[in-house]
Design a protein around this nucleic acid. Structure first.
Length: 308
DNA sequence: TAATCGTGGTG
DNA sequence: TCACCAAGATT
């Protein structure tokens, strides 16, 4: 048993953490943001679209893209009927454009295999492209009110502090964290779904990464990290991602040109986005390999036209 | 398991 | 200014 597993097991044995449910859910009732994907009219498709867009991307940047996306493609079949390149174009500058491709792929699978309705089963959700453990649980919970452990970066941080007494969770999600999250899920489905949304919201608004606002936290009085005197993070530093000069930056520039052009773009135009030819070619090849760019005869390129 | 994959706001 | 950070998934 690892140290972190012991943390979780000991924490669960030493205390009854069901007393966290009421204050956190009550706080959520009073302070939850009014986000469009939380409204009833969003439906399961709206929830799924928001979850794709929110992967590693702040709410503020998602909002406008989400609105135009659902207006243009109100159902999965509407998106599936268009070329995947249109999804990449509409994705705009949200980042990680492979998510757009995968959302298009998920919509196609939903249209073909699920009669156009976002599936309810966790396993069926998990089988969709771009849907991992978190997103499957989130859609099942938020869209269908099911009981799942929903473990995102916000929840991981809340649990790391409130239960394990650490400033930050480990770099990679551990089995101990999953076990703890499962143990903390309220017994009934409706409360479990609210708990999931509430713990995420608490992490997003109060128990934030940089400067937590513990004075506004509904469980500050029983937070293990607070009780321990808010100790600084120990262990390996959280890996910081460089960007300038990487292939990702080059890919971003290339794709930005292609998004802006309705017509095929000549190689010579793409060549202007980056000075170093080897890296430039590698980035373009990568985009093609990923299905984000379609090469044409005569050295021209465009966003993909596939619908499959 | 660890690296890869965008983008832009911010303390 | 410049690391840090933001509702992860995939290989």
């Amino acid at each position: 048993m690892t140290a972190t597993t012991e943390d979780a097991a000991n924490a669960a044995q030493d205390h009854d953490y069901t007393d966290l449910h009421a204050p956190v859910v009550d706080w959520f009732d009073a302070h939850a943001r009014d986000l469009p994907w939380r409204r009833p009219e969003a439906g399961a498709w709206g929830v799924m679209v928001s979850e794709f867009m929110l992967q590693q991307t702040p709410v503020a940047r998602v909002l406008p893209v989400y609105e135009q996306w659902l207006k243009r493609w109100p159902r999965p079949a509407d998106l599936a009927a268009e070329p995947s390149g249109e999804a990449v174009r509409a994705w705009g500058r949200l980042g990680y454009p492979r998510r757009a491709l995968r959302l298009h792929g998920a919509a196609s699978a939903i249209a073909e295999r699920h009669g156009g309705d976002v599936p309810k089963e966790h396993a069926q959700l998990l089988a969709l492209p771009g849907v991992g453990e978190y997103t499957a649980a989130a859609v099942a919970s938020f869209a269908y009110g099911q009981r799942h452990a929903v473990l995102d970066t916000n929840v991981r941080r809340v649990f790391a502090r409130a239960v394990n007494g650490r400033q930050y969770p480990p770099n990679a999600t551990t089995a101990a964290e999953r076990k703890l999250a499962r143990m903390l899920v309220p017994a009934d489905d409706a409360t479990a779904a609210r708990w999931a949304a509430a713990t995420m919201e608490l992490g997003a608004l109060v128990c934030t990464a940089r400067t937590p606002v513990c004075g506004r936290c509904p469980i500050a009085d029983r937070c293990a990290w607070q009780r321990a005197g808010a100790p600084e993070h120990e262990g390996p530093p959280r890996r910081t991602q460089t960007y300038a000069g990487t292939d990702r930056q080059v890919r971003g520039r290339l794709l930005a040109v292609l998004r802006e052009s309705d017509a095929p773009v000549p190689q010579a135009v793409l060549d202007r986005v980056w000075h170093e030819p080897v890296q430039r070619a590698r980035a373009l090849d990568g985009l093609v390999a990923d299905g984000l760019v379609e090469p044409l005869a005569g050295g021209e390129y465009r966003l993909p036209q596939s619908r499959g």
